[in-house]
């Protein structure tokens, strides 16, 4: 192996263990000093008090911690908080408009698509993302998209009903 040559430009960038980040959270601006080891879920729940986002499997398999980052669903348990810098983040708390529930929230309530409720925020956020990309998904598409979200209570069928219902109510 050859001796490393100095790179173009400057030398190694310094590693920081905390970074000031700024992002929009449910429409408001947040600026905070985030330790690099802090996950987005920890930032939202423990530091910003938004406990609607739930953490369960911890390895992005169950989907309970789903939030939208720049419109795309992400597992906040495995996302470094510093990666929220400069993004637009929506959590389950950001869906309702005042007293009006988001149509997806309404559909989950109407279809009894929840029992213990621990997976519900994640399913709701994933459904919002699905309908944004595909306003009229068929049942197969719903199953495929939500296959990465676990629910231990319902057996999934009522959730499928809720998603179809939400699509019917919101599709153009």
């Amino acid at each position: 192996m050859t001796e490393p040559r100095p790179p173009e430009g400057e030398g190694p960038a310094p590693a920081a263990t905390s970074v000031v980040i700024a992002f929009r959270l449910n429409g408001r601006r947040v600026e905070t000093l985030a330790p690099v080891r802090l996950t987005a879920a920890e930032l939202l729940r423990d530091q910003l008090g938004l406990t609607g986002t739930k953490v369960s499997c911890g390895i992005q398999v169950c989907g309970a911690c789903t939030v939208l980052v720049d419109g795309a669903p992400a597992s906040s348990c495995c996302l470094l908080a510093v990666d929220l810098d400069g993004t637009e983040v929506v959590t389950v708390e950001g869906l309702a408009q005042g007293r009006e529930l988001h149509p997806v929230q309404e559909a989950f309530a109407a279809a009894n698509a929840l029992q213990c409720g621990y997976c519900t925020p994640g399913f709701v956020m994933m459904t919002v993302a699905l309908l944004a990309a595909d306003p009229r998904p068929d049942r197969a598409a719903v199953r495929e998209w939500l296959d990465g979200n676990l629910c231990r209570c319902t057996g999934y069928a009522p959730i499928e009903t809720a998603v179809i219902l939400a699509a019917e109510r919101t599709a153009p």
Binding site: P6, P7, G11, A13, T17, I59
Partner: peptide
């Protein structure tokens, strides 16, 4: 998964600096 261990971050939009840091 437990909490993450102490961790540093190097961030740059310059490939050269990134390469120098790895």
């Amino acid at each position: 998964m437990g909490v993450l261990p102490e961790l540093g971050l190097v961030r740059s939009d310059d490939l050269g600096r990134v390469l120098a840091s790895v």
